[in-house]
Design a protein around this nucleic acid. Structure first.
Lengths: 334, 334
DNA sequence: CTGAAAGCGCTTACAG
DNA sequence: CTGAAAGCGCTTACAG
């Protein structure tokens, strides 16, 4: 591997000049710049990023905290893969790489912050793991730029990206109402999660706006996973006066609910209409097709990248970014 | 951020001694070691990894090449997420981090190799993207330890991890035969992919072993995606003498095939039995449940991590690792 | 068991 | 527009 010194010697200049060509090209004489560039290409010179980071204190790396918990499957974000692609793409367009941080090895609350400091990471993105994770707090309170997905975290250099959960839930209920349904139940996410709480709020708000009565027994809590939707739907079907429509706060739960309806010998959408949230792949695949509120999958990654880079370069903390959702109508609402 | 010099000064030792405590602890006096360790904890000293990498030429980082192609969805490995978790976990247990490499920004064939060199990566793992990617060749031919998933790549420091595709395919056919089927078709993956080619080979081998005739019209090529399975199944159903069983070389295609059977007014497994490959989540969810050959999802990540670390530390290139598959019987074969 | 010193490959005021 | 020099924070023979 050629170093900056060899390249400088070959070109008859100092290494400071070579350095400038790569960091501040317009400041050096055009001819020598071309000479250096072509010689660099010829001998295959590449700046050593470790040396660069040591000198500048900027690594051009952003950490990704995606706490998968060694034993339990951990929180499966409904579109983790899309977020990852969006994030990676948007970061790399701006010259940043993504370092996947290992889950708090030693269990100490500042293990993530320590990893960030050791590796001179310029910023961090974390994907909600659905639990209260104490390791995030020291990071959020630090001087490290952080952006959180789907979970509000407090800190001077911390912001978050989330969907318009309230608006989406309201649209779900409005759509069910518009198709003639009047007894609208909901299967919620866990109340402690932000999406869970907000989608419930949207449901309640829209019920009120439409002048529909709120019947507490029509609200059943799930955990975003399929089987909880199945169980919740069975409970709803056993009510004295069962619903004619259900808004499930996540597509997986909606698919579970769909199965429960079928198993009970009823039909979707004839007997029960169903709306989910997320627009996961399965939503289009499961007959008769699941009507749902699509989240802006690519937008999450892009917005997170933009936010963290703004903090790194701009020195300001951007406001939280609320991404719009969009209703995708399929067979489950007729 | 405290540096090694401050810590050394505080303890009344040289920075060389502090360095030894973190790299070669048994070589320093127990008392001073304890003093240094406790003082380090007190002042929150953390070794700077960039400086370390610069001095040692080892970054303790492994690159992940997962070429997602900006526009098209790219190759969706059937269990990318599980591989990623397994890899990350296994690497972090050995003290390595995972750096997601940006897709060949400039399109030059050595862009990955350059990224590896710039960042002093100790090794690289790549996930098959289903295309011939010329950027992998320069890497594979270099001195950088590489492990490839599902695709054999040649190089002095290169090995790969894959499933026993031939054995799995043979077991699929044997299972169908054991449940009384005699006209067994297959929907293959693309012939240019290793899993595609090998699973077809297993199908043919087992047919021969069972003394069943090979009828070329019973072999239809798909592309591993759902809709290709759907189309292939429709073609099979239109044959003069349609099959009574189908082995689809991937679960997504099997689900597409299942749909085609249902749409044709036929029943699975009564009219047509179906076996897939992969054991993706959907396999258990789609009625009547898809019989399939499960790949060892966690094993991929773990084996890849083990292989790359062996090359990094051991200085030998391990043999390719072939992971066993296991038959999971569900409703689609009765 | 420990320290002084050189070196890893960059960047960046400073001076010209 | 360019160079000499100091510095970034570590590690590692070498000598004791």
């Amino acid at each position: 591997m050629a170093t900056i010194r060899e390249l400088a010697r070959l070109c008859g200049v100092s290494s400071a000049t070579v350095s400038r060509v790569f960091n501040n090209p317009e400041v050096v004489n055009a001819q020598t710049r071309e000479l250096i560039l072509s010689t660099a290409a010829r001998i295959g010179y590449l700046p050593n990023e470790s040396a660069r980071t040591l000198a500048t204190k900027r690594s051009h790396m952003v950490g990704l905290i995606w706490d998968t918990d060694h034993r339990r499957p951990g929180w499966r974000h409904p579109f983790f893969q899309e977020i990852l692609i969006g994030l990676k793409t948007a970061l790399s367009e701006r010259g940043y790489h993504l370092l996947m941080l290992a889950t708090s090895e030693d269990g100490t609350p500042d293990s993530f912050l320590r990893a960030v400091r050791r590796h001179n990471l310029d910023g961090v993105v974390f994907i909600d793991n659905g639990r209260a994770d104490p390791s995030l707090q020291p990071l959020a309170e630090s001087e490290v730029p952080c952006v959180s997905l789907d979970r509000p975290v407090q800190g001077p250099w911390t912001t978050y990206v989330t969907s318009d959960n309230v608006g989406g839930a309201r649209e779900a209920v409005r759509h069910l109402h518009a198709t003639g349904r009047r007894t609208i139940a909901t299967i919620t996410g866990p109340a402690r999660t932000r999406p869970g709480a907000e989608r419930l709020r949207g449901y309640l708000e829209e019920l009120a706006a439409l002048g529909l009565a709120h019947r507490p027994e029509l609200v059943v809590e799930g955990d975003f996973y399929l089987s909880s939707g199945h169980a919740a739907m069975r409970a709803l079907l056993e009510l004295e006066e069962p619903p004619d429509a259900v808004f499930a706060a996540g597509d997986e739960m909606a698919v579970g609910a769909l199965r429960a309806v079928t198993e009970a010998g009823l039909k979707v959408p004839e007997d029960i209409a169903l709306v989910g949230f997320d627009d996961i792949e399965l939503a289009a695949l499961v007959p008769p097709g699941l009507t749902t509120l699509a989240q802006d999958k690519a937008g999450f990654g892009t917005a997170a990248a933009a936010a963290v880079i703004t903090m790194i370069n701009g020195g300001v903390t951007p406001l939280p970014r609320i991404l719009p959702t969009s209703l995708v109508v399929r067979g489950s609402t007729g």
